[in-house]
Simulated scan of single mutants.
Amino acid sequence: MSFWFPGIATVLTLGSLATSALAQRAVTRSASLARTDAPAPTPTPPTLKAAYRVQLTGTWPQETTAGGCRNGGEETLEGMLSGNGDGRYTGTFTRRTEILFCGGHGGRAGADAASCALTLKGRGSVDVTGVVLGDEISPSGRAVRLTWTPAPGQEADVSGTCASAFKDAVRALYLSIPHGAEFALTSIGAGPRTERLENYAWQVTLE
């Protein structure tokens, strides 16, 4: 099981951002989703671990154009998720990202979209919050719904042939847009578990 917020890689694939104003609207919409979708936590049973080591690995679609330009990239998040005793888990994860974009974006009505390529490389920390939920399919009977947002000080470099305004919008999205995922939790004594999430491009490993 999984849920998702519109990720920057998806936004780029759709070629939907051309100005800082559009970027800000996308950030505002995702932040609203992060607030309104948060459910009430389920009491944490004693069978759950007090802490989990979590690694999320992006499984984004990868595409190479006829001219050899690539769309896709890779992203990983990893860190310790610690229980607070109230049905929530929190932590600070390390985030490493390379996003590759090649194609058209923007364009006024009746005009062809501009075509360009860019690469975003980012590294830093994200603040992670998890809410425990009941889940009949999970081996422990519980799942966690994670949301994460970039922490202050995260870095991102954007290079390529795209216009400066577009590159600035992409960088602003990367440094501010919230994300989320939902996956099963394991019980005390269980070994590592890897799951590819159904509805969004992430693979999660729990220890």
Rank of each mutant, 00 (worst) to 15 (best):
A163P: 00
K121H: 09
R193N: 14
G189P: 15
D168C: 05
E136L: 12
A163Y: 05
K167N: 01
G122L: 02
V131L: 14
S187Y: 00
S176C: 09
V158M: 04
T129Q: 15
C162A: 11
T149A: 04
Y174E: 12
A184C: 00
Q154I: 15
L173M: 06
E155V: 11
W148D: 03
A190C: 07
A143D: 05
P178C: 10
V158S: 11
E136H: 10
E182G: 15
A151L: 12
L133Y: 01
G124A: 01
P139V: 12
S159A: 12
D135F: 00
P152G: 07
G153E: 07
P139I: 10
L175F: 14
V170P: 00
A156V: 11
D157A: 13
H179I: 08
G189S: 15
R142Q: 13
F166R: 04
A190G: 09
A172M: 09
W148N: 06
V128F: 02
F183D: 09
S138K: 06
K121V: 09
T161H: 04
A163C: 00
A184S: 14
I188A: 00
G122N: 03
D135A: 03
R123G: 14
Q154E: 12
G124R: 00
S140K: 13
I188D: 11
P139T: 06
E195A: 14
V132N: 03
S125Y: 04
R145A: 11
G124L: 01
D135Y: 08
R196I: 15
T186G: 04
G141W: 05
A181E: 08
F183I: 13
V128T: 06
V144R: 03
I188L: 14
A181M: 11
L185P: 12
F183K: 14
R145E: 01
C162Q: 03
L175H: 09
I137N: 00
G160R: 04
L197H: 06
L133M: 13
R145P: 01
G189C: 13
T147H: 03
V131F: 03
F183Y: 11
A165L: 10
E136Q: 06
R145I: 12
A172W: 08
C162P: 02
G141K: 07
